[in-house]
């Protein structure tokens, strides 16, 4: 995948993610509709590839308006990732040279890698995660499980111990997957499945779509590094 193709694919996936987010606010409060109706329209234009540079710049302005409206992100990490992908895509259009376009898109790939590795690191240094207790707490009393029946998973500490270690090892080993195209493909499939499971169990559907939008950057970065012999 070359740089232009990867950027375009990211734009389409981010446009889809933004459209889904925005539609959810259309029947909401009037001051939210003022932000999310134009955002929905711009997301559709982005998917169509209509004047992408201008559309991205306007989406960034709306992103800042959202930060102001909600005094921070509406949906925590998903909104932060949305802004990160958006800013990096804006910069690829603003950058005057191919070198700076690659830096901007490469930064997104680096942050995507760190999003898994650091998440794994902060868990593995916590004894409660290593014992499975932290995940048990998530199911037992956190605000995330989407139904009361899911809380019963807390009655199965062995399962949660296994799940905790599976998540931590996957997140910590994610950077190693950059070594070959096959390993990266497998890692991205597992990562997407992980986000899908989080969406089903904890209702974090926005994470699934926006993380997917960042995947083309790491695909491109790997082929760039392989072609120049850096991997």
């Amino acid at each position: 995948m070359n740089l232009d193709e990867a950027i375009r694919l990211s734009e389409i996936l981010m446009g889809w993610a933004f459209a889904l987010q925005s539609i959810e606010h259309i029947q909401s409060y009037s001051n939210e509709r003022l932000i999310f109706l134009p955002r929905l329209l711009l997301a559709v234009l982005l998917i169509m590839g209509f004047h992408s540079a201008w559309v991205l710049a306007l989406l960034l302005l709306l992103g800042l308006a959202m930060l102001h409206r909600f005094q921070g992100p509406y949906n925590g990490g998903a909104d932060r990732m949305s802004l990160l992908v958006l800013c990096c895509l804006c910069l690829t259009h603003l950058a005057g040279t191919e070198y700076w376009r690659e830096i901007a898109f490469g930064y997104l790939a680096m942050q995507l890698t760190l999003s898994y590795f650091i998440s794994g690191w902060v868990k593995v240094i916590n004894p409660e995660w290593r014992s499975g207790r932290a995940l048990l707490d998530v199911f037992q009393f956190s605000a995330y499980p989407v139904s009361e029946s899911l809380r019963r998973w807390a009655d199965n500490p062995r399962l949660l111990f296994g799940m905790s270690w599976a998540v931590m090892l996957f997140e910590l080993l994610f950077p190693v997957s950059l070594l070959t195209p096959l390993s990266l493909g497998v890692a991205l499939f597992i990562a997407a499945s992980f986000h899908f499971a989080n969406a089903c169990l904890f209702g974090l559907n926005r994470f699934f779509w926006i993380w997917l939008a960042a995947y083309p950057s790491i695909g491109w970065l790997q082929s760039r590094l392989l072609s120049t012999g850096h991997l």
Partner: peptide, 26 residues
């Protein structure tokens, strides 16, 4: 300045999801 302060954590994220399981509000 406030908006930039809110934007910064998106540009340089901490990625510390679920590092500790904090008390959960109802």
């Amino acid at each position: 300045l406030n908006i930039l302060k809110l934007l910064l954590p998106a540009m340089i994220p901490a990625w510390n999801f679920f590092d500790i399981i904090a008390p959960s509000p109802r």
